[in-house]
Design a protein around this nucleic acid. Structure first.
Lengths: 228, 228
DNA sequence: GTGGTAAAATGGTAATACCAATTTAGCTAG
DNA sequence: CTAGCTAAATTGGTATTACCATTTTACCAC
């Protein structure tokens, strides 16, 4: 039971929610150009400053992009699931351990699930990625193929929310990757792949766990998780 | 190597980042009142419309709150870790299954970790919550105490990021709670508590898993996880 | 046709004025 | 002197207007 939207919503918020709604409903799609501000303002029956408040809020949320002289465009970037500010907070406050730990929790479970859920085509895609790892040399390439592997695990799961959260986390830690040597790098992923192929969830989880221990040997939480 | 901040950053974004920075550095804390807009605008050497663009963007991010006639206040609500828009998206698109599945992944692992990490004081706090469950009658109270239990698990873990993500998820699913009958409700949590007390990670995870199966019997993913 | 240049379109910012809600101060009644 | 009301001051909300900066478009010269 709401009290008729509390008090009358402020104008600039109303406009913001209107545009948000259009994006949610799909009436505004990624890449679409909004009408010129003067025209849009008149259409929505608000002043331009008010409209600009709404637009700058939407821009902060990553929903639209403003180009000086060029127009306002819908970006609708759903990969920005995290509040940009909170993101900065975790980077600034030295919470790397928290981030790695979260990844650990998520990825070990994803590996277990993948072992249970993976179809043949899933496995062949994953195998192709691992096969790629052998030939990769440059650091940049290794980073890419590593990313692809872990994303594929999230994809096999078929859960869009998890995939999105995972992608957002990866943007945070992209520079943490690829500290291990190339030989171990390949073997480690191959071991995970085999566990998934055989449908052995426990082994898949254990393999992913070992992979993390090798990648981030400096964190302490392994001691307490290892026996799991 | 950046190209001198690309082009000159737009004024309203500059102001937004300035205020964001002050909050990040702790110079502006939750509850603080910003100077009046006219004064702040002069201080930052921008016009009031520009300042208001920055403020409305910060408000959209959940960092400040504007009260008509009352002033602008810092909220700095870090529990808003998710982008509000993306949140709406997942609610609108019928992704409840995704959310429950994500909770499942997270909570089962949290239970396992709690069993390994919990100190005596952790356990006594958890035990107190479970004790409370016996006497609780009203739906509202049961909701609260249930929330407290699951939050405590995240808290035992000591990971602020996970706790924050977990809280954000809970805001989404708060109405899903408390479908089970009171008797089962209490027994189920007591079983998890005992497993944590005994330090048995596997049992803790299994207990939490069973708890989910009882709470959300309609989801299919259990079939594939059960054997884990 | 190509290239450059000027005009038009469009977003960025500021100044001003006025409205609306809140807060504060002061006055009045008891 | 206190309580409560009222009016003024404070402060955010919105609109209008004007002008600047960048981009896009159109047109003209070659």
């Amino acid at each position: 039971m709401y009290k008729t939207i509390a008090k009358s919503e402020k104008s600039h918020k109303k406009v913001m929610h209107q545009i948000q709604g259009l994006i949610l409903e799909g009436k505004l799609k990624k890449g679409d150009k909004l009408p010129p501000e003067r025209q849009l303002a008149e259409l929505l029956d608000v002043g331009r400053p008010t409209l600009k408040q709404a637009l700058s809020a939407l821009e902060a949320l990553g929903l639209i992009e403003s180009r000086h002289g060029g127009g306002n465009y819908v970006t609708s970037d759903l990969s920005n699931i995290f509040n940009p500010f909170t993101l900065q907070y975790y980077l600034a406050e030295g919470k790397e351990t928290d981030i790695v730990e979260f990844r650990y929790l998520l990825e070990v479970q994803l590996a277990r699930l993948a072992a249970a859920k993976a179809t043949e085509s899933d496995i062949s895609r994953l195998a192709a990625i691992v096969e790629n790892m052998k030939s990769v040399e440059s650091l940049e390439e290794r980073l890419q193929v590593n990313l692809a592997f872990h994303r594929e695990l999230a994809h096999i799961n078929g859960n869009v929310l998890i995939l999105t959260i995972y992608d957002s986390i990866l943007q945070l830690v992209i520079e943490q990757t690829s500290l291990t040597d190339g030989e171990h790098f390949h073997r480690s992923h191959e071991r995970i792949l085999r566990a998934i192929q055989s449908g052995n969830s426990s082994l898949a989880g254990q393999s992913m766990s070992d992979h993390f221990v090798a990648k981030f040997p400096n964190y302490q939480f392994y001691d307490q998780i290892h026996q799991i």
